[in-house]
Design a protein around this nucleic acid. Structure first.
Lengths: 151, 151
DNA sequence: GCACTCCTGACCAAGGAGGTCAGGAAAGTC
DNA sequence: GACTTTCCTGACCTCCTTGGTCAGGAGTGC
């Protein structure tokens, strides 16, 4: 139930790409802007490229850019690209698990967990993230001061 | 963003304890009822004990039982006991991270992610799980057929 | 005293996390 | 055509976690 460094880095780099209009951005600039180890970031960007989220060109004047408009790329996509499916249980999707005995209804809980994650991650686009104008579901959740305290 | 075998096992074992009224339940019975490797389960139960969720007695007629009534133990507690804090980012709580540049608002997203997980996991008690009568937030999320399809 | 059951620490294999290193391959410039 | 720039790729590395197993010790009840 945790967010990996890779996913965090990927979203941050993508946010920089979303903000940079006009032309490709060098990996080095992304790494500096977000304080991410360059060579590690390059691997991440490659994964994003393979998933069709980012494009790239080599050589002088080369760099990376978003394959689609920033308001059509969600955080969920980026997280899935680098971390794989969201909210798997024991490496299986929750709808595929069969529970026995008194744990029979646990499946519904994990399904609800996944759905609630999707509600957040699929609603936020890179455009939202850069502009700071979050969708209402995020504002409602993060608006509660209680959401900001550890537990 | 995945649920470990340990967390899944812990909740399932706790559900069996919640259902078994009258007297301690042997680890062996829990392991059989939920098809969990016994020795692994014993380590998990020990962790639950250290977190004050479960009590135990040794010897003949010994076994495990819930330290509190089943309707006062949430899934969130159990998951935290065996997996640690929910929705940490890069091993830090989301409220402690400082984002720069165009990723500045990413913090709100992770806070919202954590809050949405809490909404689900803290609302479901072991009593709910065993009875199958889920709180409304779970019913609403899991009621959507779309929540049951892979993505 | 003995059977029963939990308690605890040591260990283990495989894989993932979070990187680093070295070199190759395209693209642009002179 | 040489050279620089930048991405592309695979190999490698260390540390930690996951998902267990094994062996023995320590309470508890009869």
């Amino acid at each position: 139930m945790r967010v990996s460094a890779k996913a965090d880095y990927a979203v941050r780099a993508a946010a920089e790409l979303a903000a940079a209009d006009e032309g490709p951005v060098k990996g080095e600039r992304l790494a500096e802007a977000q304080d991410i180890p360059l060579q590690f970031l390059e691997h991440i960007l490659l994964e994003l490229k393979h998933h069709g989220i980012v494009r790239a060109r080599r050589g002088a004047k080369g760099g990376y850019w978003l394959a689609r408009p920033a308001d059509e790329v969600t955080i969920a996509e980026i997280v899935r690209a680098v971390e794989g499916p969201i909210a798997h249980v024991q490496s299986s999707p929750p709808e595929a698990i069969e529970y026995r005995g008194n744990a029979e209804h646990l499946q519904e809980v994990w399904i609800a967990v996944r759905a609630s994650l999707r509600n957040v991650l699929e609603s936020v686009t890179l455009a939202d993230l850069v502009s700071g104008e979050m969708p209402s579901v995020v504002n409602e959740l993060a608006g509660d001061p209680d959401a900001w305290v550890a537990r």
